[in-house]
């Protein structure tokens, strides 16, 4: 009987260890997911954002429509609109445009824009050399700002993609910015 009890305690101990490991595995899924998304080009990464544009030659034979879109998360009280709703661009050439945002609340607010690109196939081919989404944006009450954006389409963009939509979602991070100091820092925020 005694030995059976000891054996059971050993089994229980081992299984408890498995539980702890699986709890850790749940957390491991977080970096794994990022790696997976990078590998498949599912989302923007810093890498795509920092590619050097000179490597590319302009493809004047091709015109691709780039559409600009914006969403306000949780009704953030900002009036935001793209300066251009759509542009016709040649892959391989850098273009500059901007978004205009006005803080309609009566306090200073910090916002963070998160980009997303459709179709998925275009994700890794839309290269941003400068973007307001690289850092958070602080806007005073009632102030209107112009937020620049420079981008280029990689000429390797699959031939069947003729329209690329670049959509930004603006999040109010006024609260959490104080918690997470790095969001205020001038360095680019990781977009993955």
């Amino acid at each position: 009987m005694k030995t059976k009890n000891n054996k059971s305690a050993t089994v229980a101990g081992k299984l408890a260890l498995v539980c702890v490991l699986m709890f850790g595995f749940g957390y491991l899924l977080v970096p794994l997911y990022d790696v997976f998304c990078d590998l498949t080009g599912l989302r923007f990464t810093e890498e795509t954002a920092q590619l050097v544009p000179q490597e590319f030659t302009e493809d004047t034979s091709r015109l691709v429509t780039v559409e600009f879109d914006v969403t306000r998360n949780n009704h953030i009280p900002w009036d935001i609109r793209p300066a251009n709703r759509r542009m016709q661009v040649h892959p391989g050439k850098v273009y500059t445009t901007s978004y205009i945002a006005k803080n309609t609340s009566n306090g200073v607010m910090i916002g963070q824009a998160i980009p997303s690109v459709t179709p998925i196939a275009a994700n890794r081919h839309l290269i941003k050399t400068e973007c307001f989404c690289f850092a958070s944006q602080t806007i005073n009450a009632g102030e209107e700002v112009q937020m620049p954006l420079s981008f280029m389409l990689n000429p390797k963009l699959p031939a069947n993609v003729n329209v690329v939509t670049l959509s930004y979602t603006f999040f109010d991070i006024t609260q959490s910015a104080s918690v997470e100091d790095q969001l205020n820092a001038p360095t680019a925020v990781a977009l993955n």
């Binding site: 299984l15 498995v18 539980c19 702890v20 699986m22 709890f23 850790g24 595995f25 749940g26 899924l29």
Partner: peptide, 11 residues
């Protein structure tokens, strides 16, 4: 159960 309940707990 042992394999997945901890993952839910983590989530």
């Amino acid at each position: 159960l042992i394999a997945v309940m901890p993952v839910l707990a983590g989530g």
